[in-house]
């Protein structure tokens, strides 16, 4: 908010602080104007609820957990939990296991959302219906989706029944899509794709359609228009979409338990933290694992955002 606009909005009736309105009226106009010049006025109060939530629900628990992780229950030294985590291959490998699931899942979701969103960017018949259908998985929640997938993908589920009927496989060798890596991956695709799609669609509709028209009149076919105009303008948005999707996938828990192989191939980092907290009742170790988890996510996001910083990020002339 610029000083100019805040100065002009400050005398206006302000619902969140009706009592303060009177004191600003005749008493000290000079002070309120001086403060407004610096962007300080009653509209700042709108930030208060968010700030309270942020402090109570994020900053305090985070700092508390960080402190806790340096106070190990067993062993000695503030870094004991971290040393233990990185020296035990079973624990340490949860990072790679989770990355191996999270990175491809986020990447596939983003890449799959691009062509569909691109096709649906303008006015398309049936867009609402299709968008609704694609968004339904969000509303169902992970567990319900997982139950459905167990029904569908299991050895005696519909998919394998169809494959057996088509003689693609036989009853003794059903395609294994549950309780392994692929079960978790499929679940992440089902739940992560709608997010990626909705974000990509909104980023795409922020790109002025006349840019593509201009490119077309200059001789660019659809692939050149996509490659040279749409994709470069969309890339920063795709980077953000990837980050959000990756964070969701990296903290995967229910589907790793329900659809995966939580002891071995899908022993993801959140399961390690859960085991530490509720199997071993070692909250300090669990906090340390959570901190490692946060650090890995931060590293990945930093890399992506650094790369994004090198892209063109100005206006794409859209109407939003």
């Amino acid at each position: 908010m610029t000083p100019v606009t805040s100065a002009s909005t400050s005398p206006a009736p302000n619902p969140p602080a009706p009592t303060a309105e009177r004191s600003g009226g005749t008493g000290r106009p000079a002070l309120s104007h001086r403060l407004a010049e610096r962007g300080i006025d009653r509209t700042l109060l709108l930030l208060l609820p968010g700030l309270v939530f942020l402090i109570l629900l994020f900053i305090y628990p985070f700092v508390y957990g960080l402190g806790l992780s340096f106070q190990p229950m067993h062993g000695s030294g503030a870094l004991y939990n971290y040393q233990k985590f990185f020296s035990d291959p079973y624990e340490r490998d949860t990072i790679w296991i989770t990355l191996k699931i999270g990175l491809p899942a986020a990447l596939i979701n983003v890449l799959a959302s691009v062509p569909i969103a691109y096709r649906l960017r303008g006015r398309v018949r049936g867009k609402r219906a299709l968008t609704t259908a694609l968004v339904i998985p969000i509303t169902l929640g992970t567990v319900l989706t997982a139950i459905g997938m167990i029904e569908y993908f299991s050895g005696t589920g519909w998919l394998n029944k169809i494959l057996i009927a088509l003689h693609i496989t036989d009853i003794d060798h059903p395609v294994p899509l549950l309780h392994n890596y692929w079960g978790v991956m499929l679940s992440l695709l089902v739940s992560g794709f709608p997010f990626a799609f909705l974000l990509t669609l909104s980023y795409l509709s922020g790109i002025d359609p006349s840019l593509e028209s201009a490119a077309a009149t200059l001789g660019a076919g659809w692939w050149q228009r996509f490659r040279d105009i749409v994709f470069p303008l969309l890339a920063p948005g795709l980077a953000m979409t990837f980050c959000l999707n990756f964070v969701l996938a990296f903290s995967v828990f229910p589907s790793a338990v329900l659809l995966g192989d939580p002891e071995r191939s899908t022993h993801v980092i959140s399961i390690a933290a859960y085991d530490a907290a509720y199997q071993e009742y070692d909250y300090s170790k669990a906090s340390a694992i959570a901190m490692v988890m946060a650090a890995v996510m931060l590293i990945v996001i930093s890399i992506v955002l650094f790369a994004r910083g090198r892209l063109y990020r100005g206006s794409s002339g859209g109407k939003g």
Binding site: S210, L211, A214, I229, L233, Y312, G314, S316, G317
Partner: peptide, 9 residues
């Protein structure tokens, strides 16, 4: 075009 439609990048 009326809005120029220059490629911003």
């Amino acid at each position: 075009f009326q809005n120029y439609a220059l490629f911003p990048h």
